[in-house]
Nucleic acid binder design. Structure first.
Lengths: 364, 364
DNA sequence: ACGCTACATGTTGTCGGTAACATTCTCGGA
DNA sequence: TCCGAGAATGTTACCGACAACATGTAGCGT
């Protein structure tokens, strides 16, 4: 060892004599056989590996000259820390898990996107774990997976009670767990529907003369669905309006369609408030098949404002939810908790009313 | 250390002093302070840690009696391998990265879901890395991230040329890289549009009397978009039909809308073939705003068959693509490659024509 | 000039596994 | 009864980082 002391730029001799498998990939510049370690850096800089480690951690007590040498060596060998090794000693990984039901749903997937970005900015990676949130063994399996990969924390992007419970029980080597969109379950309030959301929506409809409403809700096991039902009921009640019913769907367009069809042709409401845009879409199709025009006969609203909502026929009036921000906020809180900082309380994200053509004056 | 020799069930002292917020959760049984290692197992079983390791690897040469003791100890302490430690020595992790542009797009997110499931079944975790595929520094950043977290392989769920190139260059500690949906770029054919896809679609339209077509394509930098353009052109040409143009969008509904609007009211085609369902949706809205009825005046088709397509107004005729299967296949190939097995050639997935109300007889 | 104390840096141990090498055990054959 | 070979098992080294402790060096007062 200790060959060239200079910038290790000699004929690319493999560091630890390794490079077992790669077909000796000719000494192309820039393609090292194996990434450099702090020991390599130390050798090049002529210091001990610990000094390198100190430098990397930003330790102040290093002589300027030494500091400079290390910095140059670091650069010369293009050092990248091995996070695996670091995790082993520190016991803390740089990955956070994201549990989600089906990421093809706009909400969860957008949240995941925001979370992923926020995580990366903090030097973390987001591990996606999709699972059937109502399958007990699938959940157990996921828990086990999370433990083995020792994640720094876990985020539930879309949470059902079953899943939340499973993780409540096993707080074991999983330092933190946050359920996005869950409030009543976890005990902390993190509904994305600010108090101005549904009220604003209902105000809008009431202003158009609507008095009787129908709510197409999500599955009762989803806390997000319950939040929205509660918000809906409150908004209706406070204004002395009339709810002719709440039908539960499963977030899909089909379920919204079925919900309306299940009314057996008798739609007694003049306004249909769906808990998400997909169900609103399905509802609109069903209504038109019943011979009811939107918004002439019935007004329809959604929640989420998925990118397509603006192009539905007719374009959908909906509550815009900033999923990206939600994902970011969740990660921020998780990391704060992991680092033992005072967790910045999860911000209650405001949802903005977006009025489009699917709502209009109530029929006389 | 080395306190209790029994099942390590001493009073649950918090692991790393963490658990800042939880109120010190009393020494509940079943909540171990720290997961057991092979050394713990060895101690309990009265053998060396290496014997335990051998057992775990399925080494045959272990006396039945010893084997039994180890098995029991394993069970007693509820051993879970520490994948971090394993990775450090073996140099191979149990995670694969998934690069994606925006996972809120149905294609990529569904692929991710399939990939995630397949990965988990193989004991791997899927790390999502969202990035702006056209931002060079973001790509470099991602590459660096991938290296540090030493992933077993990388999957590009949606690939642009820029990104593919970035990874081509840096095959350094990233054993495998697969670009889903890319064929011309990577050199291997993996288009998800089987040869029966577009031809079947065009046959359907031609059968309805359509002769002049308009294609709304995806961004040219996306290989998936290019595949579809090529498939479209071939299908049109082979049948001696007429393409009045190809307009490029960005996959979004808005871009489909804009594409039609950009025709300045002059839609000379009787059939609009969009490269995905969202753009088809936007196109339909724009057409109706131009006073053209779908499908009476113009037929419109999409690709993907997103769950909502069935509920568009009118329901969309489209080519169903099995993204989940694509994700699974990609993972299978990646893992095979990682394990040095003969990579099962990536199956060319068939896309099925789904006829709905957005297509009808060509106007006379 | 001497010794003490900060400060700068080096050495060794550790995390939890795997790999290579070392040692013990067992059994058949001389 | 003893030897040697192979099987079963144990010991030590190592992956790449961090942490604790050890050592060396400079600066200061006296």
């Amino acid at each position: 060892m200790s060959g060239t002391l200079g910038a290790n730029a000699g004929p690319a001799q493999t560091p630890t004599g390794a490079a077992t498998k790669a077909p000796a990939r000719s000494p192309e510049p820039g393609v090292e056989a194996k990434p450099a370690t702090i020991y390599d850096v130390a050798r090049v800089a002529g210091v001990s590996h610990q000094t390198v480690s100190r430098f990397l951690k930003g330790y102040a007590g290093i002589r300027p000259e030494t500091r400079e040498r290390v910095a140059q060596a670091l650069d010369a060998v293009d050092y990248r820390p091995n996070l695996t090794a670091r995790s082993l000693t520190t016991g803390r990984s740089h990955r956070i898990g994201a549990l989600t039901h089906e990421i093809d749903q706009v909400g969860p997937s957008k949240i995941a996107q925001g979370a992923s970005a926020a995580a990366r900015e903090a030097g973390y990676l987001l591990d996606i774990i999709t699972l059937d949130m109502s399958n007990r063994s699938a959940i157990a399996n996921a828990v086990s997976l999370v433990q083995q990969h020792d994640l720094a924390g876990v985020l539930a992007l879309a949470s059902t009670d079953e899943m939340t419970r499973a993780f409540e029980k096993t707080r074991f080597r999983v330092p933190a767990f946050i359920a996005v969109e869950a409030d009543d379950v976890v005990g902390e309030h993190r509904s994305e529907l600010s108090s101005v959301g549904f009220p604003a929506l209902v105000d809008h409809l009431a202003g158009l003369g609507h008095r009787s409403f129908l709510h197409i809700a999500g599955p009762t096991t989803w806390s997000a669905a319950r939040n929205r039902v509660r918000a809906y009921e409150e908004a209706i009640e406070v204004r002395g309006l009339n709810s002719v019913g709440i039908v539960h769907g499963d977030w899909s367009a089909r379920s919204g369609y079925d919900a309306v069809k299940s009314l057996s042709g008798e739609v007694r409401a003049t306004a249909v408030v769906a808990a998400n845009d997909q169900m609103a879409l399905g509802a609109m199709l069903a209504l038109s098949q019943l011979g009811l025009q939107v918004p002439r006969d019935v007004s329809v609203t959604g929640v989420d404002d998925i990118p397509e909502a603006e192009f539905f026929a007719p374009p959908l009036t909906t509550l815009r939810v900033d999923f990206l921000a939600q994902g970011r906020a969740a990660v921020a809180e998780l990391l704060a908790r992991v680092n033992g900082e005072t967790a910045p309380s999860f911000p209650v994200l405001a949802s903005e009313l977006v009025v489009r053509a699917s709502t209009g004056p109530a029929p006389v």
